[in-house]
Design a protein around this nucleic acid. Structure first.
Lengths: 215, 215
DNA sequence: TAGACGTTCCCCCGAACGGGGGAGGATCGT
DNA sequence: ACGATCCTCCCCCGTTCGGGGGAACGTCTA
């Protein structure tokens, strides 16, 4: 297992994060941090000249975001490095885009240092991929439409609609949410008018089609 | 990093695979193979008594397949171990099911031993997930193999269900298909009993979840 | 030929749904 | 202090659903 060390390029607009990653990765004997970029454009340029094995890039960056940078790197740099995307936010919809762009992995900045190191090693292996549980669903399911409904539903109405989308009747929804049956009726009626649905089944259909609930 | 070793339970119906995995994992100083199961049912039983940190289970097994075993282990064993599913076939649709069942990872038997070891370590970390590139698309995209209904629907019943899944009422369905309202009622009743649905909305939900109708 | 199954239609009837109205209380921003 | 919004519950009342029967007609098969 003692071959050439893994050459890593770090791309992040925050110097603190860059140095943190550099320290974590540089401490490993089988990993060499060969460069750091503070923008997506610079990451692409450095990837071309340095030809690293792994590019560890943030999602949000000036000049070129991490997804576009990843796409451009994978398209233009030969031999193509493995790109691991890192982000701060758990509920980031870009997971799906990143993986479709060809990223080898996706992880959170709050991950354990060991996990980050392992992710880089796995990416260098060339046949594996990893990302945190907290964003797994985002990769598994189709991207959720942000605001599909013309009139936004209130919190409670969303609760009711979710249960409606499970096939529950008004009485069952009332029992689940500890509400009176009349209250549920009110919420259902408001949902129908807000969504422009003809009946409860139509409302559920709209909920599925809009991505409000995952199939 | 020198805490207690990772306790691993191996489940596979082929003794050769079991011993192979045991050798690979046992060679690592931070990993202990605490048990081996040759069926899904035995895996569940051993998981309860051994309470391992990680369960490495095959997909295809007698008595109980790996997916069902994973689901049962995650539901009943406390503290819940991390389940990593392993399979022989790249084009295995069960990737999606496994991840939805709560599996922490998915990998191929032809993976490098290093990758398998890393997968176990990452699973033990508790917040990461990995699986090979070759099956990534299966996890990213929706399952296309539509799970058939327990009792198959007749042609006409499928017509009615499709219109139900558009949010139409019985009268509208009757008008669309040039049928009497009573006929539609009969079909709907048969659909509900065949699908085991509680009401028409539930039937539409099942139609969406099974892939019978596209979202 | 005698079933089995699917499709079509009918009846009754209770339960659930959906539209209309009103009303009290909580919270929040102006 | 006021209005806006949301959540909660109540009333009436007509429509729709859903379950229980039954029955006619066709096709296909054993």
């Amino acid at each position: 297992m003692s071959t050439a060390p893994i050459r890593v390029l770090i791309a992040d607009d925050e110097p603190l994060v860059r140095s943190g990653l550099a320290v974590i990765l540089g401490a490993e004997p089988d990993i060499d941090v060969v460069g750091e970029a503070e923008s997506g454009a610079q990451a692409v340029a450095l990837a071309r000249t340095l030809t690293p094995d792994v590019v560890l890039t943030d999602v949000r960056m000036p000049a070129l975001d991490g997804i576009q940078a990843a796409r451009r790197i994978l398209d233009t740099v030969v031999p193509a490095p493995r790109v691991v995307v890192i982000t701060t936010f758990e509920n980031d919809d870009s997971v799906h885009d990143a993986l479709l762009a060809g990223a080898a992995g996706f992880l959170l900045k709050r991950s354990r240092p060991e996990a980050i190191v392992q992710a880089v090693r796995l990416a260098a292996f060339g046949d594996t991929l990893m990302f945190p549980d907290s964003v797994r669903d985002l990769a598994l399911h189709r991207r959720r439409a942000t605001t599909p409904f013309p009139h936004p539903l209130s919190e409670r109405e969303q609760d009711v609609l979710r249960l409606m989308a499970s096939g529950l009747g008004n009485a069952e929804i009332a029992a689940t949410l500890f509400l009176g049956a009349e209250t549920v009726k009110t919420h259902v009626a408001n949902i129908l008018t807000k969504l422009g649905a003809r009946n409860r089944t139509h409302a559920v259909v709209l909920a599925y089609r809009s991505g409000f609930v995952a199939p």
